[in-house]
Structures are given as C-alpha cells and as structure tokens.
C-alpha cells in the first residue's frame, strides 16, 4: 500500500448523463464515443410527483444517482453519511433569479429557497427519509477529489462504515461560459464508499510535479468513470493546483 495515498473501497457506483445510463452505455462512452449532446431528464419513479416538481435538472441528476447507487445494495439501504458535491451548484437557478431581479420582478419563493448549494442534499434526504448527517462541497476543479477526501476522513471514525459521495454539475450558464476552464458537461456520479483498511480497491495521491501533456480537461468525475471502466492500473487526473495519480489496488 502507498502510504502517501488515500485508499478507498468503492462498494458501488452509478452515473448518469444525458443519453448515457447503465454500465453498458458508459463503457461505450469510455471506449471513445463522444458524449451525446442533447437534453434529457433523468427518470425518478421513486419520488412522489409533489416533491419531484421541486427538483431542478441538477437536483434531479444528483438524487437520481444517489437512489440508484444505494438501491444496488437494497431499496432500504442508507449510508452512514452523505457528501454532496458540485462545482457550480444551482447556478442555473441563481442566474434565473438574477434575471428576474434585473427585470424588476419579484423572486419566485420556490426558486429562491432551492437555489442554495445544499438543495440536492436536502431534497434527497426528504425523498429517501434519510436523517444521516450530510456535507455539501464545492471545490472548483477538485470537487470530486475533495468529496472523496471528505468521505475518506469521515470513514476513519469508528461508527461510520459507509459514506455516499454524489457529484453533479451542469454546463455554466451562457453569461459565464467565458470563465469555463474545463469541458462543460452535464453529469452526475454517486460512489458508495466503505472502510478501506482491508479491502481498498483504489487510491489517489497528489503529484506535485505536474505531468506535461495532459490534454483532456474533462471534469474529474468523468475522468474517474473512464479510469474505473478502463483496463489500466493507474491514471493521472488534472486538478486545481496539482495533478492526481489514481491507482487500482490489487
């Protein structure tokens, strides 16, 4: 084991993007097909319509992968902690609210109340009746890395056996697109992690000497899916301040 690395045991994972769902389609994407470029809404049959109507596209994606990932264990399974991560959060809603203000109209109370960064976490906890403590994180390009680091830290506590990490993001609204520094994609990824002491299956550590020649600038979550589905044993993922080396533990 690499003592400078954070080791993880990924028990289950589930990802959704417009037009990509299920391991087969993700494998096709990872083998080189381009990401489909169309709008699509995740199906949420497990959420009552009166609650479902409150979810933005971002929250729908986050809640979708959270439920599907946990349901792989079983329909009643909840993790001991949840970590909801998003680089930009409910920015689409926020820009809509700002447009309303700019045009001199009153804000939608529903839109305002659900424009916060922990909207997805709150809606998930209501829909799943999950009272476990939850953390919401935004960490720029390192949003996946910091989410799993948070989870790994939580898992060092005695009573905590599983942590659900959810990462979801959407392309920046057009006003802000000039600030984009990575590929703009809609995606959501859920990882169910458990204690890594004896059965770690992957690890990551910082590489402070930046590797040259990394041209892909995908969000880290998509890089992670690509790595997980690939036959390679290690991969370098660009980050905010350094690159990250992911390895499969065998």
């Amino acid at each position: 084991m690499d003592n400078n690395a954070i080791h993880l045991h990924v028990k289950q994972w589930y990802a959704w993007a417009p037009g990509i769902e299920g391991a087969g389609q993700w494998r096709q994407w990872a083998e080189g097909s381009l990401m489909p470029d169309f709008e699509d809404v995740p199906a949420l049959p497990f959420i009552k319509p009166m609650l479902r109507r409150r979810l933005s596209q971002l929250s729908k994606m986050a809640v979708k992968v959270a439920f599907e990932c946990l349901n792989k264990e079983n329909d009643d399974f909840n993790a001991d902690r949840t970590v909801f991560c998003s680089r930009h959060g409910e920015l689409t809603r926020t820009v809509g609210l700002l447009e309303t203000l700019a045009s001199g109209n009153e804000l939608s109370p529903t839109g305002f109340s659900l424009s916060v960064h922990n909207a997805a976490s709150g809606l998930y906890s209501i829909a799943r009746a999950d009272t476990a403590p939850s953390v919401s994180i935004a960490a720029g390009r390192d949003t996946l890395i910091e989410g799993v680091r948070e989870a790994a830290t939580l898992l060092t506590e005695d009573g905590i056996h599983t942590v659900l990490v959810v990462v979801a993001d959407e392309p920046l609204p057009s006003y802000l697109s000039e600030y984009a520094d990575e590929e703009q994609r809609s995606f959501a990824l859920a990882l169910l992690l458990s204690k890594a002491d004896i059965n770690a299956n992957c690890s990551f550590r910082a590489l402070y000497d930046r590797e040259k020649g990394i041209e892909r600038q995908e969000p880290q979550s998509l890089e992670f899916i690509r790595f997980t589905l690939s036959g390679v044993s290690s991969a370098v993922m660009p980050g905010a301040r350094c690159d990250w080396l992911w390895q499969k533990d065998v």
């Binding site: 009166m50 109209n105 939608s108 109370p109 529903t110």
Partner: peptide, 17 residues
C-alpha cells in the same frame, strides 16, 4: 390538492402578477 406553505407564497406572487 395537497399544496404547502411555499406553494402559498408562489401562488400569491403569481396571482399578484
């Protein structure tokens, strides 16, 4: 219909507009 308090605010705004 089963609406809640935030619906009351939203509906009030829509009626006002």
């Amino acid at each position: 219909l089963g609406l809640d308090s935030i619906d009351a605010l939203e509906l009030g705004l829509a009626l006002k507009n």
